[in-house]
Structures are given as C-alpha cells and as structure tokens.
Design a protein around this nucleic acid. Structure first.
Length: 521
RNA sequence: GCGGGAGUAGCUCAGCUGGCCAGAGCAUCAGCCUUCCAAGCUGAGGGUCGCGGGUUCGAAUCCCGUCUCCCGCUCCA
C-alpha cells in the first residue's frame, strides 16, 4: 500500500476555491493541462494534456487497465471505434432521449423544455374538456352518454381540434427542425412563464447530446454519423465477437478506454466536465438474476481500487441513485471530494439486459449466450463500471497538491503515487564539472529504458529538488564527487526529503520497487 | 441563455484621476560561483497592454462594440 505522509495542509476547507485555482494554475505552469486552442483565445470546456499531463494520464489508464484486464482472467480488452453505425444510437436510446428543444424566459431566467410547455398548455385545454363533461353529467344525469357528448358537443369538439392542431403544428415544426415555428407557436398560444408570468421568451434552441458529423468525402453522398457519447455501446455491439473469439464464458467482462463526446449544456469546472473526455469502462455480462450479486462485487472492488492509491478514504463516498435511468435496475456513483465538493467520479450501474436486447431488436440478429450450465440461451444482464479518466486525473492532481512549511519556507509538492508519477527519477550532478555530468548520464542510461527520467544540471541542487517536487518525481538521484570514487549516489525521497547513500548498481531495483504495481493493488 | 467577475511578459501582478518612450518579482536562456533542500553575481531574450472602432495633439488608462475565460443559475445518462 502507498503510504501517505502527514502533510501540513496549507489551505483549509474555507480556501477550497483558492486551492482549486492554484491547482489549475499549477497544472498549466508545469505542463500538465493547457486550455485548448489557447493561441486563439481558447475553446470552452476543452483541454489539452501537456508533457507531464499526458504521462500522468497514461499511467492512470495503464493502472486501470492492468487492474481490470491483467488481474481478472475473465475480463478482456477491446478498442472499438468512435464512429459507429447510426442505428447504434437509436438502439441505445441516445437519439430519442436526449434532444430536447429548450427555451428560456428572460425575466425569470428559467429554462424550460419547449415541448413540455406546449404539452402542459394542451393538458390545460384537455382539462377544460373534462370540465364540460362534468357539467354535462350534472345536466343530463343517468341518461348521459359520454362518447356521444364528446363526439358531438361543439365546445368540446372545438377544444379537441385545437389540441390536435397545436400538437400537429408542434410535431411538424420539430420534424422539419423549424425551431422558429415552435417559438411562434408558444407566442401565439400566449404561454407564459409559470414563475415570472411573462411572455418574454428567448428563441428556441435544440439541445443535442451528441455531436453530429458526416462520413463520406462528398457532401451529397455523405451520411450522418455521431461521435460516440459513451464507449459502452462499442462493447455491446461487439459482445458476440468478443465472446466467441476469446472463448469467454459467462460471467465475463469487456474493458475499454477511449474518448467520448457530449454536448453538455454547461461544461465547467476545469477538466471535470468536458465536451471531449475519456472513459474507462468495463461491462460485465452475467446470468439474469445474478446481477445484484455482481453489482455488489464491483462496487466493492472499484472502491478498493481507489483506496489502493493511498487517498484518504474520507474523501470517497457512495451515492445511490434514486431516479434510475431507463436502462438500469440499480445504480450508484463513487463520489470524490473535489476542491469544489463531492462529485461523481465513477458510476456502477446494473444495466439489466436493456442494451443487448435493444441491439438484438434493432439489428434483427440474435444477441444471446448459450449457457451450458443451465442448458439455456438468454440475453445476459450487464453490470457496468464507468470511470472518467479525466476526472480520475483531477482526483489525483487535486489530492496530490500540497504546500508545506519547511524551515519557514514553503515547499510545493505533488505527492502523486509513485506508480502514477510522470517522471520516476531525476538524475542530478551536484555540479556540472569534474566529470559529474558524465557519471550522471551513465546512470540515466541505466534507468531510462524502463522509467521516464530527467537529467538536470542547471541551478543549485536545492532548487532542482524543488522543481522535481513540483511535478511529483518520487526520487532524485544526486551524483557527487564521492560517486566517482565509490560508485554511490544519494537518493532523495520526495515525500520525506530524507537522503540515503545508495550504490549505483542498486538503483534499478530501488526505483523498480518504488513504482511496482504489486505495491498497489 | 441570463447575472456577476476578469483579460497587461511563461507565471503572479503593478500601472488604469489619459502624456518619462510599458514596469516589478519569479520563471526562461548564456556565463560566473562548484554549492545536498529554491529565490548569490553578470548579462540576454520575451509584451500588437484580448480584438475592432471612436474621442484626443496624445490611450493600457475614457466611450462604444466584440471575443474569450472564470463563477452562479437552468440541464444532466
């Protein structure tokens, strides 16, 4: 297990926002994260990973992958494409469930779904019909024939046709993608904001979850595609391929990491909610009825994974979902206490057979598994673990950022778990003369095949230590004059700042042990 | 989309009652020092003051417009 040293937290809870700003500034200054397209004033909610950031991100991804694929013989990997057949997103529910027309009231600043406003309005008219019916019941008593009344009463007929024409206009406008007409309709109907009571509406805008693009080099021959909003569907669509070719038996899982794209209505909080982000997902296929057992298993297993990185367990919590999505029968999040509060880091969902069943229906192919144990074919149930790689990155980064007092001076250190640290060791000649640089470069060549190392000779040794602290390098290896005589160096530990005299031929083992996967999981 | 805040060197900022020609610290680079926990010495590079327009003899500084970022609200699989 990674051991957390006792750090003096420079900033307390009240300064959380300040800490967050510092983390963001630090991330830029030391080449972890840059605003996308900064040269052109930036692109909102998109970020780039710099030299240290891309290393850290790779290391997190690898740690996840090894934990999932290497350490579970019933989990295999997959790398499916970002482009998928458009029907995929029909089947998954993304096309229908997530493209709502939105409208804002300028006075109350409230946002509504335009279709809901119109439907509510129609519901009001339908309420009037009910009133007419009730009145008629009073008037006619037992001899009242509701169907006849509703079919002939001029006032009711008027209401009914009004409802129908409204809904028809609405669906025509939506079908033709004429959002102006939707707004016109809302205005004509005199719909007011329930909060402000005014008709001061903005234009209707379409909210599309998915990014649309075209495949095909010529515009007229092109077909519309989406950039995937989740990697999971690539796994589901390949369920049979993987199961058959890897000869997997249920229960088994398929793991995948990769980019996903979502048009968030608001995308903020640094890399927490981005429009382009990376997921690490594992879909675990089980026999129907066994899903709750596996759901509990993966909840437990995933929490252990997080704690294996040595982060304080008080900073994690489970959050069970009350309102389940259309595909789930149980769902929870693992939340992490980010500088801006507890937020979702990973989701663990029991997705039932919704996805595979839907793909079976839309493809017309049998998407099933024959279970020899019970001699039956069935559509497997799925338990999903889905973690945001970028969110995990932010977890590590914000948790690692420490400012401590050392002899009255501030020391800024990223206490990144050694396994994940971008640079594993820095090799530093105490001075740049007397053959020390040459000796240092020899040491560098001993290590650099297996560990990312840095060589530095500029500035005083203390300054170089602090620079390495700022990017979270676990070990600094310093070559001095004694090294030339007895082939030993000093190894300085990032967290304790303790120094140890070590023989050069022991360095490889020392660093290996420090960053060994075995220490963690 | 609305409301609030902000945009000056890689970073943190000063200058903003209009007029030393755009500054400081840190960082970067070269050299000196040869030093085991940063900020020693010398020198150098780097900024169309977000962008566009206007007022003025003259604007980073005033006015208008515009863009971008950050925070809050609305949405959230």
């Amino acid at each position: 297990m990674y051991k957390c040293n006792e750090y003096v937290y420079f900033c307390d809870m009240a300064n959380y926002e300040e800490v967050f700003k510092k983390v963001v500034a630090h991330a830029k200054e030391y080449g972890f994260i840059f605003q996308s397209s900064e040269l052109y004033d930036g692109l909102a909610a998109v970020y780039d990973y710099g030299p240290n950031g891309s290393e850290l991100k790779n290391n997190i991804r690898n740690y996840w992958w090894k934990s999932m694929v290497n350490m579970n013989e019933n989990i295999v990997g997959l790398d499916s494409s970002i482009f998928m057949h458009p029907t995929t997103w029909k089947a998954s529910g993304h096309v229908d469930a997530f493209n709502d027309p939105l409208i804002d009231n300028k006075d109350s600043k409230k946002r509504y779904r335009a279709d809901v406003l119109i439907e509510d309005y129609v519901a009001k008219i339908e309420g009037k019909i009910e009133k007419e019916v009730k009145k008629a019941i009073k008037r006619f008593g037992d001899s009242f024939d509701k169907e006849q009344f509703v079919g002939t009463n001029p006032r009711v007929l008027g209401y009914k046709s009004k409802c129908m024409s409204i809904m028809q206009r609405f669906s025509e406008a939506m079908a033709a993608n004429k959002l102006d007409d939707v707004k016109t309709l809302i205005k004509e109907l005199g719909i007011v904001c329930p909060v402000s009571g005014t008709k001061n509406w903005t234009d209707v805008r379409q909210f599309n979850l998915m990014f649309k693009t075209q495949m095909g080099s010529t515009a007229d021959g092109a077909s519309d595609l989406y950039l995937r909003p989740e990697t999971a569907q690539g796994i589901f669509v390949n369920f049979l391929n993987v199961q058959k070719t890897a000869r997997m038996k249920i229960p088994f899982g398929i793991a995948q990491t990769g980019k996903a794209f979502r048009n968030e209505i608001v995308a903020r909080q640094f890399i927490f909610r981005m429009r382009e982000f990376e997921q690490m997902e594992m879909q675990f296929f089980v026999r129907p009825g066994k899903e709750m057992k596996w759901y509990e298993h993966w909840k437990d297993s995933r929490m252990k994974w997080h704690l294996s990185l040595g982060i304080d367990k008080e900073l994690f919590r489970f959050h069970d979902h009350d309102n389940l999505a259309h595909y789930a029968n149980a769902a929870c999040d693992i939340e992490f206490k980010f500088p801006f509060g507890f937020k979702e880091l990973e989701g663990i969902h029991s997705r039932t057979d919704f996805d595979l069943k839907s793909h079976q229906k839309h493809s017309g192919r049998k998407v099933q598994y024959f279970d020899p144990e019970i001699n039956e074919s069935y559509i497997p149930y799925v338990v999903e673990t889905s973690i945001g790689l970028d969110r995990m990155f932010l977890t590590i980064l914000s948790n690692s950022y420490k400012e401590e007092k050392v002899n009255g001076e501030n020391r800024l250190v990223l206490s990144i778990p050694a396994l994940l640290a971008p640079v594993k060791a820095a090799v530093l000649p105490l001075t740049k003369k007397d053959g020390l640089p040459e000796k240092a470069r020899e040491i560098l060549s001993l290590l650099q095949c297996d560990f990312l190392c840095q060589y530095e000779e500029k500035d005083s040794i203390g300054k170089r230590y602090r620079r390495q602290d700022a990017i979270g390098t676990p070990y600094c290896i310093t070559v001095d004059h004694q090294s030339l005589e007895d082939n030993t160096v000093t190894v300085r530990d990032r967290d304790t700042m303790a120094q140890e005299r070590v023989a050069i031929d022991r360095l490889y083992t020392l660093v290996s042990k420090k960053v060994d996967f075995r220490n963690y999981l």
